[in-house]
Design a protein around this nucleic acid. Structure first.
Lengths: 355, 355
DNA sequence: TTGAAAGCGCTAACAT
DNA sequence: ATGTTAGCGCTTTCAA
């Protein structure tokens, strides 16, 4: 490649016949530059390939940025606890660059709480916001405020098309459902019934769940195996009838598999499958939570699709930090791989440090 | 956390009643410090928690490091081509920090070439080395030279316990075989025969292959399903009999699955399976190579286990760069997750930018 | 053995 | 509108 020392602002200044101050001004278009000066500098810039020394930039502009992370209370939910781990990790990673990350928890089951907390965050005036927009309407109205205050923000976990975030981090949920379906279908040669279970303690997630279901159905439709039947049970574990429904479902002799669309629901379903001793039923669910891990290791859960909440959060902070410090554009859409977790590869994930 | 500006060398100097130069000398024990000065500084150091500003350190010392990457010629093999992509990416990533990365290719099929190239690298005197130690004895002797010259090095892809590298990056191969076995076993209820295929055009890889095989066998042994039989065929595609052997293998009616231990072999096996129209045989292999991708999408290949050569290399450079610039210790063992790739999730991997 | 001071490349305040 | 200059925190050279 190109050896020889890399180009500095000073070099550009010399080549363009102006001062470093001027070059700096055009580089960051801070205005106050004459047309002629601008011409000269841009001319040089087009000739050469200038890559700013980010180390020097960081040191020189001795700034401190604050990033707020708006997420459901991590102490009340294992999924969001993982998310928070990612934020803490990012916090450590970026602290040496003078970036302070603060988690602002809201109540997962309470829209009002989100509304209130969002306003508090804005009043606190962070330099950027990472937000899990669980509640649709409340989120949209929060976005408006962010934009009014010109606070850049990134969405993760749930995508909402309203508003102008820097980007979104998450997964393709329809495709996620298709992955579930493929894993379900594998090696199933006899006529069979599969159940889709939305055990949505997390009411808010309904859009999520439906997209996964859509992908799941799509896949089977494409397979054109008419002998397959899908049973769709939307269950709420708080209903009195929940146990009965599960029992009658599990008693069906043709039931060959269950696809659960939520991470917490996965463990719930697994406990029923174990209780009724139907360990030959293929069970597919979401995420490497402590509870699920147990059933995965015992063989009750066959596959988990990993949504990687920890890294989603970590990357969200990372994108914002890069945006603030280095003016690097965040990717508009950062879709995570749909990781397939099994009894045999789960440890390799847990140990790999990516988690 | 701790707000309030962090402590600088200047602060320590003031507290200890010495100059920054002296503090710097004790910090890096460069000698030339009187006992009394040393006492004073260490006293202060024990009181406070000093965390050096790495950004400033990097800028101040203004060093340029060179890292050499010793890998098989990427133009001759798609797997190593991926590796090289990772090196190129790392190269870009770190060039702005004054780190120069250079790929030094050797001949994958020629031990002498490795021996020769390794010596050339040493004479060139890089500041650190990333090496894929394909050939056992040649590697061990190269390690000795690295250590003699005190050049830090990191191993990847293949682990060799001799020598004192900063660390190793790769996968748990036995476990990898177990993952293959589990995927093979899934939903196989009837008596069945599975074949393990070592299509080892890459002769050197034999230890690799055997470890994978070991894991694969282990898993089935644990399942205690006596009705399963494993056929182990070590095939060499250059033998005249290769076609015949494949044909007779594929003609077995009880053959339900093939596990291929190499990435290139995977595509070879897939082409045979397609040719003989045995698409109901479960085929499991390695890596998202262009060739394999085709068969994965068409459904001939059911699963790929991803060794992630690109990221292995990228991370290797990254660890070395961190070691050189920031004195950050590289992890002694960085085992990658055993990623399971299917027709339905492969795009999510390809698009995710991790690749 | 020490301290002072000149960088590293960039930013930003301050004169012109 | 432009150039000059003083930092940012640390390293490293050079006198003393």
């Amino acid at each position: 490649m190109d050896f020889g020392k890399s180009i500095r602002i000073k070099d550009i200044a010399k080549l363009a016949g102006v001062s470093v101050g001027t070059v700096d001004r055009v580089l960051h278009n801070r205005g106050r530059v004459s047309d002629s000066a601008l011409q000269k500098v841009t001319a040089v810039m087009n000739q050469i390939e200038y890559k700013p020394n980010l180390i020097a930039r960081t040191l020189g502009s001795n700034k401190n940025y604050r990033i707020a992370a708006l997420i459901p209370d991590p102490t009340l939910d294992p999924y969001w606890a993982q998310t928070n781990l990612g934020i803490i990790q990012a916090q450590k990673e970026w602290s040496q660059y003078g970036i302070i990350v603060e988690t602002i928890p809201f109540d997962l089951y309470n829209k009002e709480s989100f509304h209130r907390i969002a306003r508090e965050v804005i009043d606190d005036g962070p330099d950027a916001i990472l937000v899990a927009p669980i509640f649709y309407y409340e989120s949209v109205s929060a976005f408006e405020l962010f934009q009014l205050r010109e606070i850049p923000y990134i969405l993760f976990n749930t995508n909402i098309l309203e508003g102008k975030p820097l980007g979104f981090i998450g997964q393709n949920l329809t495709q996620s459902g298709r992955v579930g379906a493929q894993l379900m279908n594998l090696g199933q040669h006899e006529p069979a019934t599969f159940a889709i279970l939305h055990i949505d303690e997390d009411v808010h997630d309904s859009i999520h769940l439906l997209e996964k279901e859509k992908g799941f159905r799509e896949y089977f439709k494409e397979q054109q195996k008419s002998k397959f039947e899908i049973v769709d049970l939307s269950l709420n574990p708080h209903q009195i009838t929940f146990d009965d429904q599960m029992r009658s479902l599990l008693e069906r002799v043709d039931l060959k598999g269950i696809f659960v669309s939520t991470s917490k629901g996965t463990a719930v379903a697994a406990s029923f499958v174990e209780t009724y001793g139907k360990s030959d039923i293929r069970l597919i669910g979401y995420d490497i939570l402590q509870e699920n891990l147990k059933y995965l290791k015992s063989g009750t859960i066959d596959f988990l699709i990993n949504q990687n909440p920890k890294r989603q959060a970590q990357l969200g902070i990372s994108h914002l930090a890069n945006h603030l410090m280095f003016k690097r554009p965040a990717p508009q859409m950062d879709l995570f791989p749909l990781e397939i977790i099994t009894q045999q590869n789960v440890d390799s994930y847990l140990e790999s440090g990516i988690h």
